[in-house]
Write a protein that binds this DNA or RNA. Structure first.
Length: 901
DNA sequence: AAGAATGAAAC
DNA sequence: GTTTCATTCTT
């Protein structure tokens, strides 16, 4: 595999890699390299650099934070600037996935040129495939939106100039939508601020920025909870509402999951986590002073949680909390305990879970002091509910919000970024969190926590999920959450070895891994069935595999990987964990009790899903098992991933800078991973196919209009017969596209008798149904074509009786046909086998259900995802094949159409 | 920084 | 309808 792939890409990559540095964003991290980094060496180096750099970055970006490692909660400031990036649309996804391929083939080509080609490809793409991308995009978007309820694509054009006053007001309102974005959520908050997302007020959560990943999780969970529970009350939270509606979008699920209790994987992990927590606490973000504890830059989730809880308490004075997750309560408990100590411990924390609410009140009072420590500044969450809070929060936060709120029309992102409101953030104190209390306090806290855990928690948690792979998960989770920074070296190596599998890998967590993974994936992606087939001889072999295709596609890599990983990782993980436990104790130093406490906490957290990492791991484990099934694919967004990602993202640093490609910052890993997985799962068409098409088209173009940009695509051998069928389709589409682009030119007129011809040819292949294609084309408008003259295009498209279109197409087709004829057999077979049957979407659709493999694009991803999720739980495989009612509905039209035909 | 493409959202 | 911005990366 690699050989081929490597051969191809390497050069390009190498080039790229050299260039990569460009991005500023990257600074902070290896991700930058992401693309280039295919090679392990590079990666490693990068990793190292990264490690080193991180601090620097931290310093740069957030000088104050100091705790680079620490989770930078603070970064809100930065975050302010960074708004979450919009989710990519289908086309972008497609581009992202295929650009490398294009480049490989046409190294010379500029990106622009590549983009054009990609556009062409896109135009040609089968509706089904497009749909996949579209679905994915949608899913992604949905998840994203859930994560960031108030997110707006456009920064609120400032037009109105919200003006500062607004900003202030906004700041209050704002409550922060959930930050948890894959990357940049924080920014979102800002946006919202400006926008005023009124609805969210209720949530008034702590700033995500401040909060660690956990916070994100919590938020997510809370949202979920709130949505469910509060739904009645909160008409406000659009997000929540949405979540409900979708019910199952992956993201939503994620939220749910987070909320739902999960069993901690192994005790071992717990220990680790706890230890890490202790470290964190002790070391505290800002306070390095703690001698005992090793300063782990990374904050423990727990710590974050505590922060969060504290923040929440502030913001949300309301009683809602009670309802909220046990985790939250726990956090509160912790805080309370601390507060008590500080104040003098009038009451004991042990209050018990049941009493939590009451405690909350007390806590809230106590908290204020803590708040100072906390980074209240941005919490602007402005506890919607708490009347007072608004005022208080406003003052500190105001500044930030103002910046954010305005959305400044900054025309360009960069500007915005630059603008960063960092100024305001000065927030010196944010980091302060670490509490003086330090260990002793911790102990007390722990105690309380334990009590809580035992008492309330146990009862509450009832449902704990099964830990399926919890073990596996656990290890990773631990790794991830706690040691975000960790070294990547290992992971990289592993990754290299495993290549694909790495994603979930055990250690991996970190950023490095992700990037690598991503890269790996991307690289591999080509290798993936389709691409690979074409490139390499393997094709034959694959085809069979491909049969199931659609998903398999995606899965192909994953499954193996996952499995391997799972198997491999699990054992190791456990071992590692054990080791960690052993080791950690040292770190932790004395205090077993704490540990134990922590352990309890950890459990609780886990149960709650707070520990995203664990969850993610678990999920992954599931996935691994599931892998084969379609569900993976579509199921797509695992909650975990999001949660995780969120958590990861939580880190401001990354978020901000992460812009670079994956950006997905290291931390996010999981989320990204999943994203990537899905992304990878997306079918990657071999360039050859496209090329051929393109070539054919080009030729035409050339002949007709010299205007083709991408004349030369090498037709590497028609060898890539597989996709040829696609090819045809593509050709058709392609025609359209060209028409569009050059359309004006004039091709229009030519009749395309050929079309018919082509169809016959296609017809030859079982899968393909020529007639359908045109329809497809028609059905799926090539695209918005907003910019170009689509009208002309449309006009151009002369439909034949069949509905086929433009003349150009005919010609192309004819060409294609000729080519195809030779190759077709394979392609068809393969395709058919694969179940993809690009040719006929409909047929495919119809078939799809039957053939588990081919997922009909038609099914809404959401539906699929849901189904998958549902099924996954029970069984991992093929659930997808069975359409849900919703799916059926979706299909209905198609079916009908088919029937008509 | 501009630009190529498409699409989704916001205006 | 138009504008913005998402991604990538060369020029």
């Amino acid at each position: 595999m690699k050989g081929g792939g490597g051969g191809k890409e390497p050069p390009v990559e190498g080039e790229i890699s050299g260039k990569r540095p460009k991005r500023k964003c990257l600074q902070w991290h290896p991700l930058l390299a992401k693309k280039a980094p295919d090679f392990s060496e590079e990666e490693e180096e990068e990793d190292e650099e990264e490690l080193e750099k991180e601090p620097v970055l931290c310093t740069e970006s957030v000088a104050q934070e100091g705790v680079c490692g620490g989770i930078e909660d603070d970064n809100e400031e930065y975050s302010s600037e960074q708004r979450a990036r919009r989710p990519m649309n289908a086309f972008l996804l497609f581009c992202k996935r295929h650009r490398s391929l294009v480049r490989q083939e046409h190294p010379r080509l500029d990106n622009r040129g590549a983009t054009k080609i990609l556009a062409d490809w896109w135009a040609v793409l089968d509706p089904k495939e497009k749909q996949k991308y579209t679905d994915m995009a949608k899913e992604y978007k949905d998840a994203f939106m859930k994560a960031n309820p108030g997110y707006k694509w456009c920064p609120a054009t400032n037009k109105p100039v919200k003006s500062p006053s607004h900003s202030v007001s906004n700041s209050r309102k704002k409550v922060w939508s959930l930050p948890s974005n894959p990357n940049k959520d924080p920014s979102v908050a800002k946006k919202q601020a400006k926008t005023d997302s009124t609805p969210q007020l209720n949530f008034a959560m702590a700033d995500p920025n401040k909060m660690g990943g956990l916070s994100m999780l919590l938020l997510a969970g809370e949202h979920a909870l709130t949505a469910r529970e509060i739904s009645s009350s909160s008409s406000q939270t659009g997000c929540t509402d949405v979540a409900k509606h979708t019910g199952k979008s992956a993201l939503f699920q994620l939220a749910e999951i987070s909320s739902s209790p999960v069993q901690p994987a192994g005790g071992s992990k717990n220990a680790e986590d706890t230890s890490s927590l202790t470290h964190v606490e002790a070391s505290g973000p800002s306070q390095p002073s703690s001698p005992d504890l090793p300063k782990s830059c990374v904050k423990s989730p727990l710590f974050q949680l505590a922060e969060i809880s504290s923040s929440r308490s502030q913001s949300a004075s309301e009683g809602r909390q009670c309802g909220q997750s046990a985790l939250f309560q726990l956090a509160e408990m912790c805080l309370a305990s601390e507060a008590e100590k500080i104040e003098a411990r009038s009451s004991q924390p042990s209050g018990g879970s049941s009493s939590l609410c009451a405690q909350h009140s007390s806590i809230s009072t106590a908290i204020p002091d803590h708040e100072e420590q906390r980074d209240a500044p941005e919490l602007p969450l402005t506890t919607s509910s708490s009347s007072t809070s608004g005022s208080t929060s406003s003052s500190p936060t105001d500044a930030i919000p103002s910046d954010i709120s305005p959305c400044k029309t900054q025309k360009k992102k960069k500007k915005k970024k630059e603008n960063k409101e960092s100024d305001e953030n000065p927030p010196s104190p944010k980091k302060a969190k670490k509490r003086q209390s330090s260990e002793s306090d911790l102990d007390s806290v722990m105690f309380t926590i334990e009590a809580v855990a035992k008492g309330t928690w146990g009862s509450e948690e009832t449902p704990k999920k099964k830990a399926r792979p919890s073990e596996c998960e656990s290890s990773p989770s631990t790794d991830q959450s706690p040691s975000v920074k960790k070294k990547k070296s290992k992971p990289k190596k592993q990754l290299k070895l495993k290549d694909d599998a790495t994603e979930e890998e055990e250690e991996g967590d970190e950023e490095a891994n992700k990037p690598q993974d991503v890269e790996m994936k991307t690289e591999e992606a080509p290798l993936t069935p389709k691409a690979e087939c074409e490139n390499e001889p393997d094709l034959e072999v694959e085809p069979p595999i491909g049969v199931e295709d659609m998903e398999p596609h995606c899965s192909p890599l994953q499954p193996t990987e996952l499995e391997e990983k799972d198997t491999d990782t699990k054992p190791p993980q456990t071992t590692q964990e054990d080791k960690d436990l052993e080791v950690k104790p040292e770190n932790c130093g004395s205090r077993k009790s704490e540990r134990s406490c922590k352990g309890a906490l950890y459990k609780t957290l886990v149960s709650e899903g707070m520990l995203t990492s664990l969850r993610a791991n678990v999920d992954r484990g599931k996935r691994g098992s599931m892998r084969g099934s379609v569900s993976d694919h579509e199921g797509g967004w695992n909650d975990e991933s999001w949660g995780f990602s969120q958590a990861a993202t939580s880190n401001p640093k990354k978020l901000k800078k992460s812009k670079s490609k994956e950006e997905t910052a290291p931390g996010l890993g999981k989320l990204e991973e999943e994203f990537e997985k899905k992304f990878n799962s997306l079918p990657q068409y071999s360039p050859l196919t496209f090329d051929k098409k393109s070539v054919a088209v080009t030729k035409k173009k050339k002949s007709s209009t010299s205007s083709l940009p991408e004349p030369p695509k090498p037709c590497k051998g028609s060898s890539s017969s597989q996709k040829k069928t696609l090819f045809h389709k593509i050709v058709n589409k392609y025609k359209h596209r060209k028409e569009k682009s050059s359309a004006a030119d004039k091709d229009i007129a030519t009749p395309d008798p050929m079309v018919t011809e082509s169809s016959p040819v296609k017809s030859g292949s079982p899968c393909v149904s020529p007639s359908l294609e045109p329809q497809k084309v028609l059905d799926t408008p090539v695209g918005s074509q907003k910019r170009k003259a689509r009208k002309s295009k449309i006009t151009h498209l002369v439909r034949t009786a069949d509905g086929r279109v433009s003349p150009a197409e005919a010609e192309d087709k004819s060409k294609d046909q000729t080519k195809n004829q030779d190759e077709k057999p394979f392609t068809q077979e393969t395709l058919c086998n694969s179940g993809v049957c690009y040719n006929d979407p409909r047929s495919a659709e119809v078939d799809a259900p039957d053939t588990s493999g081919g997922l009909p694009a038609f099914f809404s991803l959401a539906a699929l995802a849901e189904v998958a999720a549902m099924e996954n739980v029970h069984r991992a495989q093929r659930a997808v094949s069975i359409p849900t009612e919703g799916q059926v509905k979706d299909m209905a039209p198609v079916l009908i159409s088919c029937a008509d035909q």
